[in-house]
Design a protein around this nucleic acid. Sequence first.
DNA 1: AATGAAAGTGTTTATCC
DNA 2: GGATAAACACTTTCATT
Lengths: 158, 158
Amino acid sequence: MKSLQNKGVALDGVDEKLIAALIKNARSSMRDLAALVGMSAPSVTERVRRLEDIGVIRGFTLDLDPQALGYALQAIVRIKPLPGQLKKVETLIQTIPECMECDKVTGEDCFIARFCVPEIGSLDGLLEGLEARAETNTAIIKTSPVPRRLPPLQAGRS
Amino acid sequence: MKSLQNKGVALDGVDEKLIAALIKNARSSMRDLAALVGMSAPSVTERVRRLEDIGVIRGFTLDLDPQALGYALQAIVRIKPLPGQLKKVETLIQTIPECMECDKVTGEDCFIARFCVPEIGSLDGLLEGLEARAETNTAIIKTSPVPRRLPPLQAGRS
DNA sequence: AATGAAAGTGTTTATCC
DNA sequence: GGATAAACACTTTCATT
């Protein structure tokens, strides 16, 4: 049994601290980050730039509250296209702005998608086009025991 | 039929431009944002601060690449706790760092969760504790036609 | 609410280790 | 790969509208 990480980039403790801090606040100043890890600002700037270069950090973005934007509800929909409709269904899903993620998976259901809507009544309209071309199974989200979050650092070493 | 947005905060065009720009790059300078919307830096700073205050912007964070971190695979697991095991199962899921989201939903399956793993072999270990207390149904993600993204602005006006 | 100008911070570049 | 210091850029405060 190999003890090496299967893939993925080797991050040292400093990189991990920087990423952890930037997850909490992506607008942290390089100066503050530098103080946190006990290095100079230029060095930290270079580290962060490198993390972007190698693709670990894909970008700096917002955490938005769907509720505050007027989306009171989310649903998870399993979607099984009718024979011959797979490609069309996939394209259709991709045209829905309220789709917050859609994965093509192994097994009975072909797609699993998450949608946000202002109220329960909006769901039907959203899925309209889909329901002619696929069997769907909709589950309304009641609570989120684990809110959407990022993968842990240190893959395989947890 | 009421034409008002059901809930959610009223955002003007400037707010929407600022949010859109910050989604693309949360580290944009207030000066650049100001130029973008044709206002002064202090005004834009105040706008962004206000968007945080009212809870539309929950924070500034990273977009990390799970693959680059060594997670070659993700799976979506539907979890139906055995009688009397609901609370314990929920707690158990919350202790798994590789769980990137978990929702409690209506319908047959009680929880739907997303996990990331370095390789297919790691899944079994992750779900070990769960499988004694719940029926699980695992779907391996092959591709993501809609990658994880944020809700659209302008709820109900799309 | 928004602005311009000044004062205060933070970033970047260049040079060196 | 990391540090320091000077030059440059950005942010914040404040007085004003």
